[in-house]
C-alpha cells in the first residue's frame, strides 16, 4: 500500500518532468522556426484573426463589466475611509496591472486555446499531422509557430483594449451611478497611474500568450484515443493554461512590483 503510494508520486513526478521537457523543446523549436524562413505568414495572419479579432467581443464584455464592478466595490470600501476620489486610480491600476492581462489571458485560453488544441488534436488522431510530415513539411513550423506568434502579438493588443474598456466601465459607473466628479476621477487616475503600470501589464499578457499557445498546441500534438482523446486534450489545454496563467501572474507580479 505504502509502496504503491510512493510509486504513484514517482510516476506523477516523472510525467511532470517529461511533459515540461517536451513542452520546452516544442517552445524552443516553434520560436526558432518562427524566425527562420520561409515564413508562414498566411497561417500566422489567419491565427491572428482567430486569436485577436474574434476574441475581441468577449474581451470587451469582460473588461467593461469588471471595471464597472470594481468601481462599485471600490467605492463602497473607499468611502468608509473618506477616499472616494481614489476610485479612479483603484480601477485603473487594478485593470492595468492585474485584471486586464489576467482576464484577457483566461478568456483567450478558454476560447482560442481550446480551439487550437481541438484542431491540432483532431489533425493528430486523423493522421493529418503524419501527412504533413510525409510531405516533408515540419508540423511544428506549420502548425505551432504561427499560433505562438499570433498569441504573443495579439494578447498585448487585447489587453490594451481590456484595460481601456475596464477604465471606461469604471468611469461610467462612478460618474453616472456614484456621482463622483469626472474631473476628480480623471485627474486622480492620471496622478496615480504610470506608463510602467500599463507596460508591466502588457509584459504579463505577452507571457500569457506564450503559455496559451504552447500549452494548447502541445496538448493537441500529443492527443491520442480518437474523439474522447481530443475532448480530453481540449479540457487539459484550458485548465492547465488557466492554472499556469495564475501561477505565472503571481511570479511576474513578485518580480515586477515586489519591491
Amino acid at each position: 500500500m505504502k509502496s504503491e503510494f510512493f510509486e504513484n508520486i514517482g510516476k506523477s513526478a516523472m510525467e511532470f518532468i517529461n511533459t515540461t521537457g517536451r513542452m520546452s523543446i516544442m517552445l524552443g523549436h516553434a520560436a526558432l522556426y518562427a524566425v527562420t524562413p520561409p515564413f508562414k505568414l498566411r497561417n500566422t495572419f489567419k491565427q491572428m484573426e482567430y486569436v485577436g479579432v474574434k476574441s475581441l467581443f468577449v474581451v470587451i464584455l469582460t473588461g467593461a463589466f469588471t471595471g464597472a464592478v470594481l468601481a462599485m466595490q471600490g467605492y463602497d470600501a473607499l468611502k468608509r475611509a473618506g477616499l472616494e476620489s481614489m476610485v479612479g486610480p483603484t480601477v485603473a491600476l487594478s485593470m492595468a496591472r492585474e485584471l486586464g492581462p489576467v482576464l484577457t489571458g483566461l478568456m483567450v485560453a478558454g476560447r482560442a486555446g481550446s480551439a487550437m488544441a481541438t484542431e491540432i488534436g483532431t489533425m493528430r488522431v486523423t493522421e493529418q499531422i503524419d501527412a504533413l510530415y510525409t510531405m516533408a513539411v515540419n508540423p511544428v513550423k506549420y502548425l505551432v509557430s504561427p499560433r505562438l506568434v499570433a498569441s504573443i502579438l495579439m494578447l498585448p493588443l487585447l489587453t490594451i483594449v481590456s484595460d481601456f474598456v475596464g477604465v471606461l466601465g469604471g468611469y461610467l459607473v462612478s460618474i453616472k451611478l456614484l456621482a463622483i466628479n469626472p474631473g476628480v476621477y480623471i485627474g486622480r487616475t492620471i496622478d496615480f497611474v504610470d506608463a510602467d503600470d500599463i507596460f508591466y501589464g502588457l509584459i504579463k499578457s505577452l507571457v500569457f500568450g506564450c503559455i496559451i499557445a504552447i500549452n494548447a498546441c502541445y496538448q493537441g500534438f500529443y492527443a491520442q484515443g480518437g474523439a474522447e482523446g481530443v475532448g480530453r486534450c481540449a479540457t487539459k489545454a484550458v485548465v492547465l493554461s488557466c492554472v499556469l496563467i495564475l501561477i505565472s501572474d503571481y511570479i511576474l507580479t513578485s518580480i515586477m512590483f515586489g519591491s
Partner: peptide
C-alpha cells in the same frame, strides 16, 4: 493514409 488524412480545412 488509411483514412486518406486529407486536410479538412
Amino acid at each position: 493514409f488509411q483514412g486518406a488524412a486529407l486536410f479538412d480545412s
